[in-house]
Amino acid sequence: MSSWYLLLATGLLLTIGGALWRVWRGPDQADRMMAAQLVGTGGVATILLLAAATGEWAMLDVALVLALLAALAAIAFVKSVRGAGHGDPEDEAQNDAARADEAPR
């Protein structure tokens, strides 16, 4: 079984390699960021398989942390689009009013 898990994990690494290609190509920042998200999910899956392969189930904690923090970078990214990193990413043109007094100098 251990070899099977490792083989699958290697396959997962290859899909991560594909995602790396998309991070390189872009062309939008959004593309790069979403490809990074795939690496995150793939990484979590890889860790699950490694845990199974070695029987070290404590590795699940690493996957847990990775899954928990995966969103952090993406949120920092969507925030970075407006107002130097602290504006509202869901803020559409029509509801700018709330933003007026919060706008950065």
Partner: peptide
């Protein structure tokens, strides 16, 4: 830091 704004309920 800066004050973060988001749409409530978003």
């Amino acid at each position: 830091g800066p004050r973060h704004v988001t749409r409530p309920g978003g």
